[in-house]
């Protein structure tokens, strides 16, 4: 299972703050998580801690973190 964690408002796009998903073959993140166009360029994606993009391929056992780019308090 791939584990997906979504921070801030991105949680609303995966239906919760985290989810698990079975990934039978490598798949692009954008194919499993649908985000509005205006968010592209406003988010950070880490796969197992490595900077990634919506076009990065993920496999079962990956830990994906989606988080907004924010500017602090």
């Amino acid at each position: 299972m791939a584990f997906i964690r979504a921070l801030g408002y991105l949680a609303e796009y995966i239906g919760g703050r985290s989810m698990k998903i079975r990934v039978d073959k490598p798949v692009k993140i954008r194919d499993i998580i649908k985000l509005p166009l205006d968010l592209e360029g406003r988010i950070i994606i880490l796969v197992d801690g490595q900077p990634s993009t919506l076009d990065s391929l993920i496999v079962d056992s990956d830990r994906i973190v989606l988080m907004p780019i924010i500017s602090g308090g």
């Binding site: 921070l7 801030g8 408002y9 609303e12 985000l35 509005p36 968010l39 406003r42 602090g72 308090g73």
Partner: peptide, 14 residues
């Protein structure tokens, strides 16, 4: 996108 959540939490999401 994200406006409604900002209204809920603001900088506290940090």
């Amino acid at each position: 996108s994200g406006y409604d959540f900002w209204i809920r939490q603001g900088t506290m999401m940090t």
